[in-house]
Design a protein around this nucleic acid. Structure first.
Lengths: 225, 225
DNA sequence: TAGATTGTTAATCGATTAACAATC
DNA sequence: TAGATTGTTAATCGATTAACAATC
């Protein structure tokens, strides 16, 4: 019933919360390795990230028995396993759609390239932007998305377009064969089950912060200043 | 036991998940108002956002009985209530720390200003950047944070600095009297209980997307390409 | 009134934590 | 061996959903 040649992957997709912690574990392990550490226990790793030790063990055990009782986890051994689980052990061909301020900033963001996300095509609808060059790439008209995506084999899209057009652009991306969208537009997107979607909603985040400040200092801030 | 003059605020802070949905409700209500709608039921609002109707009612009832049985919620009435709950019915004096690509992009991001978050001071450590002007503001040396923050009454900070220095800069922000931090550095921050923290981790988000694509097309993508 | 919809209780579901035998 | 730490089961906690009397 078990296939020894299969990759370390769960039977069912692990809960979303588990996966976001796996990202944190990986980054922490990479930092530890940089400082010469060889092994780490679940309680050490957890306390660095503010996570319960049982949770660390349970999260990792989801994917296989990677730990060594009495010793902990081998950092060098665990890193490539986690990279494989997350799917960042390969190159992801990515398009950036929308070259406003945020789009241009993300294009230069180093955190992406180092994780295997390679932006290889740019798209916009603004005639003034089409034809411009950013980070060595020429901006295409959005109309060209289907042909360019097919030609280059684009898999992911980073969406930094206005909320009003986000759904239409996402629809076009999907008919162009794109498998996953990282959405920065503050709009709820309706996509088919087969397409992966992660949304990053910056204004919502700031609202969370305002609420937290208000409740942390409950009563100390006048209601309207 | 109940004080009729008190603002619509919960006894205890509502769960984090509730608050992020309240942000979504508010934005959807603002859109509906723009299109002339007057009332909306929990099931209509929920289906626009992919949220269960009972959850919508429960989330809102957390803060008070704002609905009208048989009718739904008055959009015009609910919007200012939600703005008050989130704390975006006022101006938040905000500093931006770190003028790299992401920082400069966020400075121009329209989603912030419209929500009451006003960036009124910029800080960096790079001598080449100090003294520059962005969006009409002069970049201060980070050393000046305590004095400038006190002088201007800065309440929030947006942190777009490298991960290695994030903790030190956050510590300085807190001793400068800043009450809340929106952190974009990919590092876990350790802050006192009294300081509010929201972290936005962009590389983690892309990793979530890669994992989702992988599991959505389980087995259809070769393990290494 | 009849129909619609709320606020809330109870039921369900899922996620986190504690505890501990098994292992090195 | 003794001490440390895993993987996992059971207990706890919290969040979501269903159901429905109360209300307009």
């Amino acid at each position: 019933m078990t296939d020894p040649f299969r990759e370390a992957q769960p039977e069912k997709p692990a809960p979303k919360a588990v996966i976001s912690r796996v990202s944190l574990y990986l980054r922490q392990l990479e930092n530890l390795q940089r400082f010469g550490h060889k092994t780490i226990s679940s309680s050490q790793l957890g306390s660095l990230l503010g996570i319960n030790d049982a949770q660390v063990r349970k999260d990792l055990a989801h994917f296989g028995p990677f730990g060594h009782p009495g010793i902990g986890y081998q950092i060098e051994e665990l890193i490539p396993i986690l990279r494989g689980i997350l799917g960042i052990d390969r190159v992801w061909k990515t398009a950036l759609i929308g070259l406003g301020n945020l789009g241009r900033a993300l294009l230069r963001y180093r955190g992406f390239r180092g994780r295997g996300f390679q932006v290889i095509a740019l798209f916009d609808t603004d005639p003034k932007k089409i034809g411009q060059t950013h980070a060595g790439l020429t901006v295409h008209s959005l109309q060209e998305l289907p042909t360019v995506a097919a030609e280059l084999g684009i898999q992911l899209a980073i969406l930094t377009v206005p909320a009003e057009v986000a759904q239409a652009v996402a629809d076009l991306a999907i008919t162009s064969g794109i498998q996953g969208i990282l959405n920065f537009a503050p709009a709820p997107l309706n996509l088919p089950e087969t397409t992966a979607l992660v949304s990053v909603d910056l204004s919502t985040q700031l609202e969370q912060l305002a609420y937290k400040v208000l409740t942390a200092h409950a009563g100390q801030i006048p209601p309207h200043e």
